[in-house]
Simulated scan of single mutants.
Amino acid sequence: MKRRLAQFDLVKPKFPKCDPRMEEFYASTGYINGIAEKHSGFIWRELEENQPLLDQLWGEGYLYTLSLWRDVESLKDFLYNIPHKTLMRRGGDWFDPISHPRVVLWWVEEGHVPTLREAHSRLIQLYEVGPSHDAFDLSSCELPTVLY
């Protein structure tokens, strides 16, 4: 059975969307999403964010990305290559720090489309339990195959 990598990323903008200090970020999202969608490892991205549910789960003011990738290597290739890497370096200009993990990865069966509630559950699991085969991040994606 094939599996796919689900990816969830949560951010808290420092300023409202209409604030000129956020203009460069919002202007670049379409371009960056287009690059992601053309990547050979990209499968799917949620296009219509569920802001009411997001506000219910985390509180007001957050943004997120929920996507599917072929594997960890594909996601890393997209994230750490220009131009995405350039924008990631500017994250402190646009987003407040979050005191808990804000990115979570997990494996899903091919054909499964992850939900925002599922992402919330996985992120909470990563925060409360730590990295596991069910919820991990990029720094813990090479877990051993047998856990003792």
Score class of each variant (00 low, 15 high):
Thr145Trp: 11
Leu5His: 07
Asn81Val: 01
Leu123Lys: 08
Gly91Thr: 03
Leu10Val: 09
Glu142Lys: 11
Glu110Pro: 07
Tyr80Ile: 03
Ser139Gly: 06
Pro52Arg: 13
Asp96Ser: 05
Lys85Leu: 03
Tyr31Met: 13
Leu57Asp: 10
Pro97Glu: 09
Phe136Tyr: 10
Leu123Val: 05
Pro20Asn: 11
Arg90Glu: 12
Arg45Met: 15
Arg89Val: 03
Asp96Tyr: 02
Ile98Lys: 01
Glu48Phe: 12
Glu142Ser: 12
Ser99Glu: 08
Gly92Arg: 11
His39Ile: 09
Ser121Glu: 15
Arg89Phe: 05
Val72Arg: 11
Val146Met: 10
Ala27Asn: 12
Val113Cys: 13
Gln56Met: 13
Ile32Pro: 01
Phe8Val: 06
Arg45Asn: 07
Asp77Lys: 09
Leu57Cys: 12
Leu66Trp: 11
Thr115Tyr: 13
Tyr62Ala: 04
Phe78His: 07
Asp134Gly: 13
Trp107Arg: 10
Thr115Ala: 07
Tyr62Pro: 03
Pro144His: 09
Val146Glu: 11
Asp71Tyr: 08
Leu75Gln: 10
Tyr148Val: 02
Leu54Trp: 11
Gly92Leu: 06
Trp106Cys: 02
Glu142Trp: 09
Pro97Gly: 03
Trp44Asp: 04
Ala119Trp: 12
Cys18Trp: 01
Glu73Asn: 10
Tyr64Cys: 08
Glu110Ile: 07
Ser139Pro: 00
His84Leu: 01
Cys141Gly: 00
Met22Asp: 02
Lys85Trp: 00
Pro114Ala: 14
Glu110Leu: 06
Thr65Gly: 09
His120Gly: 05
Trp94Leu: 05
Gly30Asp: 14
Ala6Thr: 07
Pro101Met: 05
Leu47Met: 13
Gly30Leu: 08
Glu48Thr: 14
Arg122Asp: 01
Trp94His: 06
Pro131Cys: 14
Asp93Tyr: 06
Ser67Ile: 05
Gly91Trp: 00
His120Val: 06
Ser74Lys: 03
Val113Asn: 07
Arg90Asp: 03
Pro101Tyr: 06
Ser121Thr: 14
Val146Ser: 09
Thr65Phe: 10
Tyr80Val: 00
Pro114Met: 15
Val72Ser: 03
Arg89Thr: 00
Ser67Gly: 03
Trp94Glu: 06
Tyr26Ser: 08
Gly111Asp: 08
Ile35Val: 15
Ser67Tyr: 04
Cys18Tyr: 02
Glu49Leu: 15
Asp134Arg: 13
Lys12Gly: 00
His100Val: 13
Ala27Asp: 10
Gly59Met: 09
Phe136Gly: 04
Leu147Gln: 08
Arg3Gly: 03
Gln125Met: 15
Met1Glu: 08
Arg21Thr: 04
Gly130Trp: 14
Glu46Lys: 15
Met1Tyr: 07
Lys14Trp: 04
Ala135Ile: 11
Gly34Trp: 11
Leu63Thr: 09
Val103Asp: 00
Gly92Tyr: 09
Ser28Gly: 01
Lys17Asn: 02
